[in-house]
Write a protein that binds this DNA or RNA. Structure first.
Ligand SMILES: [Mn+2]
Ligand SMILES: [Mn+2]
Ligand SMILES: [Mn+2]
Ligand SMILES: [Mn+2]
Lengths: 227, 227
DNA sequence: TGTTCGCATTATCATAGACTAATGCTTGCA
DNA sequence: TGCAAGCATTAGTCTATGATAATGCGAACA
């Protein structure tokens, strides 16, 4: 059984965004690992060697690391725990979606498979967490759904918010207050490239202008394009 | 915030049974600490010095340790977490009372005050856990209730099982199968000192003979003495 | 083709928690 | 009154995980 530290590294490796245009099987450079885990570069290197010893990653000196098959399976297991716990904390205990990430970050290392499956049952086998992140099944990869960042949705399109990529409480509170939670519908009103902004109209809330960076963190399902 | 290891030591110190006839404020010898925590004597000594440094225990070399006021408050907090979690696992997730102790042993270190108070609310502020152990309030000591070990109950008495002291799954399964769970009522039929045994009649279950040691782990509330 | 700059690696050290083995108190008994 | 047996303490080591600082490699640019 891996330590909490090892579990955190594996999860971090899994969720690293591939560099633009890269396959997710490409090598992750050590600097990125160090930054993701907020440790020094030396610590990252030595930890990656340890994980490689344990067969959880493939490590190529001066090139980077990628998860091995075993490492990937473990990472998905931790991610499943994390996201089911988040959903549980919101649905059953009534916590706010802005505070469950940090709670789950600890609980994911303490919960047994048995308790986890009870939670899954109680929740009716959800397939996403409160932020719209997919919950991996107990075996195998989560299904892939094609989503469009709000920043790229066409003017006039009607979209449904499906997933919010930023876990920061401030951002989540902001999104909640403006009707940008998974399931809420909105219409894209305008792009303002010069202002680096986009304006949209959430259903049942005032219209809203967001910077491109923020809009890029809101992933949507296109319901209807501009007619 | 103490580490999980420190929390476990404090909890263990709190639940150490005082030697027969001792006040619970007496010093606990190092051998007892080492045995309770299943570590070597040297480890116990060095850990107690560390805890003394941190002001959580009073340590007298070659005599023993006792919890300080701060250590006691912390121990009660951990115990509250442990027992509320156990009750939650049984009541909400439907786990068996024989398996929740080990689960809670991990979760007690991972759960936040916020989540804990939500659980407490959801359960309706229970004051005992599934084994009948009292749940300490968020501040202060748990109320003391006078209970009688089944081994000492008089022949002919009607008693209600209030608390089961052994957390071993085997013992708990045995107790459950024979109707010896908190809340179940039974009548004491006979003492057989020569056989080191006691016979009782649980309501709605076959009568049962137990060794004195086992009967001593079943604490009861006397409902009615022999007429 | 050579050099430099950015990143990675190595070397050294620290801390928490554990172990084993050697040593040292203390107390009860002769 | 003295000593041995039973505990407890100390000394030295180990592993996991971190840090810092010195060194090294290699890709891109001159
Ligand atoms: Mn975590
Ligand atoms: Mn999430
Ligand atoms: Mn514990
Ligand atoms: Mn209990």
């Amino acid at each position: 059984m891996p330590t909490p530290t090892v579990e955190n590294y594996l999860k971090a490796l899994y969720v690293q965004p591939p560099a633009p245009g890269q396959q997710p099987t490409e090598l992750i450079p050590m600097g990125q690992v160090a930054e993701a885990m907020r440790v020094s570069p030396g610590t990252a290197t030595s930890m990656m060697k340890t994980l490689a010893e344990a067969g959880l990653v493939e490590y190529e000196p001066r090139a980077g690391v990628r998860l091995s098959e075993r490492g990937l399976a473990l990472a998905l297991q931790i991610l499943r725990r994390h996201r089911l716990i988040e959903q549980f904390l919101v649905q059953v205990l009534g916590l706010d979606w802005s505070e469950v990430h940090d709670e789950a970050e600890e609980l994911e290392h303490a919960i047994s498979d048995k308790v986890l499956e009870r939670i899954d049952l109680l929740l009716g086998h959800p397939d996403t967490d409160p932020h719209g992140d997919p919950i991996p099944p107990s075996h195998g990869q989560p299904a892939h759904v094609e989503l469009t960042p709000l920043s790229l949705a066409e003017v006039g399109a009607q979209v449904t918010v499906a997933r919010v990529l930023d876990q920061q409480p401030d951002f989540l509170n902001f999104a909640h207050q403006h009707g940008l939670t998974p399931g809420s519908r909105l219409t894209v009103l305008a792009h303002q490239p010069a202002a680096d902004a986009i304006t949209c109209q959430p259903e049942g809330a005032p219209s809203l202008t967001l910077g491109t960076a923020a809009a890029g963190k809101i992933l949507t399902l296109i319901e209807q394009t501009a007619s």
